[in-house]
Design a protein around this nucleic acid. Sequence first.
RNA 1: GGCCCCAUCGUCUAACGGUUAGGACGCCGGCUUCUCAAGCCGUUAAUCGGAGUUCGAUUCUCCGUGGGGUCACCA
Length: 472
Amino acid sequence: MSVITRFAPSPTGLLHGGNYRTAVFAYLFARQQKGHFILRIEDTDKARSKPEYEANILESLQWLGIDWDSFARQSDRLAQHQAAVKRLIDSDHAYLSHETSAEGKESDLIRFRNPGGVITFDDLVRGPINTDVTDLGDFIIARNIDEPLFHLAVVVDDGEMSVTHIVRGDDHIANTPRQILIQRALGFTEPRYAHLPIVLGPDRAKLSKRRGAKALTEYRDAGYLPESMLNFLALIGWNPGTEQEIFSKDQLVEAFNFSGIQHHGAIFNEEKLRWFNREYLLRMTTDDFSTYTMPVLKEALTERLPALAFSHAETSMKEGAAAGGITDMDATIAQKLLPVIRERISTSNDLRTMVGEGELDYYFKKPILDVTKIPFKGGSPTDTVKHLQHVKETFVKSSQDQFKDPENIKSLIWDYATEIGRGAVLWPLRFALTGAERSPDPFTVISIIGLTETLARIKVAHNLLEASGLST
RNA sequence: GGCCCCAUCGUCUAACGGUUAGGACGCCGGCUUCUCAAGCCGUUAAUCGGAGUUCGAUUCUCCGUGGGGUCACCA
């Protein structure tokens, strides 16, 4: 018998990572067993189900790389549910019960005739679970013949779709016995159950939208990669029994097993997720990283433009700044900036923040220099001018094509810097270029902004130092 | 509260009677370095408590304690 699993979310809100973790496990198991994976939208609650939530579920699953073999919507299966209710009534497993609700509404509810006794099932992760269902009483399975409720619908759908393994959150453990009761009354084969430990928020309570759990699509929008999200989700409450942590989808499919699933809840740790994302970013090809980064970088830079505009007017990078977008020149620089960015971010949102806070400004405009910070730790302005002058002359004498690679640039002045004291030479150079106390090394910066701009900035620092020297 | 489940570093976890209780994230420190980032190395940190069983308990049993889930005409 081939394995059939399903993911059966309700489109009554945006689903969070914990919900999708359930989908991941059901999916991995189905793929591993060369089985069939069903996506079933449980929208029997008409009042709360919304099309946009359903759309978000589909979108999220596709993004994660969880593809389904068949799709069903519970609301499309009303006829089957009604037939089942009729069968239940005809066989005296259920009956009509005329009742008045708390709000005073009268209706003919359909109640399941509970035989009582102990129901036992062997959970794939928890082992045998026994429940005395006597106390449940005759529970309600439909509001009326046209409005079947959750338990009835689930059992009918799982039964008719021949689901062999029900993988779901362990908040359903308490529901299982009554579903088994309905199942037996309807004559369906009992599936295997695998109840997954709940995913907790930082407060150790069940992850929920109300307590601030983010929708999966929010993580996507923040720049998380589907691969890292899948990897992370799979490792919440499950481990392969080895020390491997980075898993491709195929590897997860192969390694997954129910015995590696924990029996207790696990906290959704965003720090770890960030780490996973960074690991995947680091593993990307240059082209893929560019595709991942450039749209965000361009967008962020465009927003940053007002702050950059002033200097665009007076530098060599001025073309087209007023046109409302970043210039070709800027785009070229952005492309060169990619390696620098890669070692500094975990998500593209980090990049957005960097640009927004002006951390990248000096690549696109001349920095405004605080002249007192140009000399290295207690170095004199006079010596600093001398060193900058030397560096400048060395650069001028060198051929243009040496300025593409940071290592080459480094080799031009490294011996001089070592001889003089690297700090005394490199700090003023780097500061002249960036105006920042913290930045990548000067060689990297030069390779990005180019020789012409480098010389211009050195000249600015030079002039500033001389002017301050005269006035003191 | 009833019922059910769970319990190893702050977090995710390994150990399936015998280990200096291992790994990862984070934190902290060092190396490298003009600064930052990265990288490399390292430190700190845990078996909830109490009884048993056993030559020996993280591991098995019981009792506490703590945490979580669930108790709808929601799913």
